[in-house]
Computed example of a mutant assay.
Amino acid sequence: MAFLAIRASNGLFLCRASIPVAYRTKELLQTRRGNLHRTLTRIGSKISIERVNSAPADTEYIFDRYLEGSSTLPGKRILLIGCGTIGSFLAQQLAQCGAGSRDGELTLVDPDLLYPANLGRHLLGAPFLYENKANACAEFIMEQLPPLNIRPVANYAESVEIGPSLYDLVIDATGEEALSIALNHRAVKARPASPPFLFVWLEGNGAVAKSVLTGDLDHVCLKCLKPRLTQAPRHKTLKSAEDIIVERNAACGAGAYVPFPVSRSVGAAALACDHVPTAAQAIG
């Protein structure tokens, strides 16, 4: 059996040729290879030709099938910090937009493990329990989209070197205010050499999703939205009377958590994903 590929201006055509067993001998295929075309011509009526139907699956075909000008992530180097309730879904959406394709790279950073308490609002399921979230997300996404270059880092964000020569965009999806402020300080201190930073988080019990892109010297940074951590933000999105509900499973010793449905996690990830092309276009 042999395959023949013919490339034409309107596509690539494949056919499969089945040669009778009597003619698949070592003598014919190797010793008399120079006369093989004559032999095949002589037994042409005995050769079965079958057209092979296929579909393209290259990265250009998969990730460039969007509206004109919207596919901007192939070839970009993106650092995503946090692979939790927002970051895990965002990692998948970025990958589906082409992050990590061609000569680009999608780096996932998270030091935590996936616990049973996470399953209700996380991309991953039971097969990845007690595995590092960054490693597990990278494994899951690459299984779905093998051509991608995804690099997991099972460590804290402070351990990752950040610079314009390393990343085109840095995304903080941890939702941890202290870490976000620290990352923002890092970015502001390194201006104008720092890559753009995109922050995404939920407020209240998932009532509001926010996404803020920083990096332009003429615009605000994350700290400008809330100059003093002990005071209210400049622009409130929640009613003052609204209290955040915090619960705790005292029986199992788990830490406190803020309850909200998984749809809020996906919505926040989608908001940030829609924001990413703006940053990608800004960096060229």
Rank of each mutant, 00 (worst) to 15 (best):
L124I: 10
G125W: 03
G125N: 11
A126N: 01
P127H: 05
F128H: 14
Y130Q: 14
Y130T: 08
N132I: 06
N132Y: 06
K133I: 07
C137K: 05
A138L: 03
E139D: 10
F140R: 12
F140D: 11
I141A: 02
I141G: 00
M142N: 07
M142L: 11
M142F: 03
E143V: 00
Q144N: 13
Q144Y: 04
L145Y: 07
L145T: 11
P147S: 13
P147H: 13
L148S: 05
L148Q: 03
N149M: 07
I150Q: 11
R151I: 01
R151F: 01
V153E: 15
V153T: 01
N155M: 14
N155T: 15
N155L: 12
Y156L: 10
Y156D: 11
Y156R: 10
A157I: 03
A157M: 08
E158D: 14
E158C: 06
E158A: 12
S159V: 10
S159W: 02
V160R: 03
V160T: 13
I162G: 01
G163E: 02
P164K: 14
S165F: 02
L166S: 10
L166I: 06
L166A: 07
Y167G: 07
Y167H: 12
D168V: 05
D168H: 15
L169W: 05
V170D: 05
V170P: 04
I171W: 09
I171R: 10
I171M: 13
D172L: 03
D172R: 08
A173G: 05
T174C: 01
G175P: 03
E177P: 00
E177F: 09
E177C: 00
L179K: 00
L179Q: 03
L179I: 09
L179H: 02
S180H: 11
S180V: 05
S180R: 15
A182W: 12
H185P: 00
R186M: 15
R186D: 06
A187N: 02
K189D: 13
S194G: 07
P195W: 10
P195L: 13
